[in-house]
Simulated assay, not measured.
Amino acid sequence: MTITKAIILSAGQGSRLLPLTRDVPKCMIDFNGRTLISWQIAALVANGVTDIVVVTGFRTERVEDHALQLYRETGARIRCVFNPFFQVADNLGTCWIVREEMDRDFIILNGDTIVSDEIVAKLIAGTQDAITVTVDVKPDYDDDDMKVNRDESGRLHHIGKRLLPPDTNAESIGMLAFTGEGPAIFRNQIDQMMRTPEGVERWYLRAIDIIAKGNRVGTVSIEGLEWQEVDFHQDVEAATALTAKWVAEGRYGR
Rank of each mutant, 00 (worst) to 15 (best):
L18P: 02
L17E: 09
I208C: 07
N188C: 02
A239Q: 03
L20W: 00
R251L: 15
I210H: 08
V137K: 06
E201M: 13
A76G: 02
R206E: 10
R77S: 12
W39V: 08
R104L: 05
S38T: 11
I211R: 06
Q69P: 01
S38D: 13
I8D: 03
E201G: 13
N83D: 15
I7L: 15
K213T: 11
T21P: 07
Q40M: 15
Y141T: 06
A121D: 09
A125E: 10
N83A: 05
G253R: 12
A238F: 02
D140H: 12
D51V: 13
T196D: 06
A207G: 05
W96H: 11
F85T: 14
I8Q: 02
R162V: 05
N188S: 07
E201A: 14
V49S: 10
I52W: 14
C27Y: 10
W96C: 01
V137D: 08
F232I: 07
H66F: 15
A6L: 06
K213W: 09
D151A: 11
G218W: 08
S172D: 14
L44R: 11
M193R: 02
I29T: 05
S172P: 00
R202D: 00
M28E: 09
R187I: 03
Q228M: 08
V98I: 06
D90R: 14
R216P: 02
F186N: 00
L109N: 03
L70D: 02
G93A: 13
S221V: 10
L242M: 15
T113L: 09
T219C: 13
A184M: 10
D191R: 08
M1F: 09
M28C: 14
Q40Y: 13
V54Y: 14
I211H: 06
A207E: 00
A207T: 03
A46I: 05
I41V: 15
F232H: 11
Q128N: 13
F58T: 05
T94C: 05
E73V: 12
A248W: 07
A46Q: 12
M102P: 03
H157Q: 12
V247E: 04
N215M: 12
D145K: 07
C95E: 01
G253C: 09
V115L: 11
A76W: 01
F82I: 08
M102R: 01
V133S: 04
F186M: 03
Q192K: 11
D209S: 11
C80Q: 05
F86H: 15
P139E: 15
I119T: 01
P25A: 11
A238N: 10
V81C: 09
A76S: 00
P166T: 03
K122R: 15
L36V: 12
S116D: 10
L163E: 04
D51L: 12
V137M: 02
G154F: 01
V137E: 14
N47V: 05
A239L: 02
R187T: 01
E100G: 03
T168V: 06
I41Q: 08
N47F: 11
T240M: 06
L17R: 08
G174H: 10
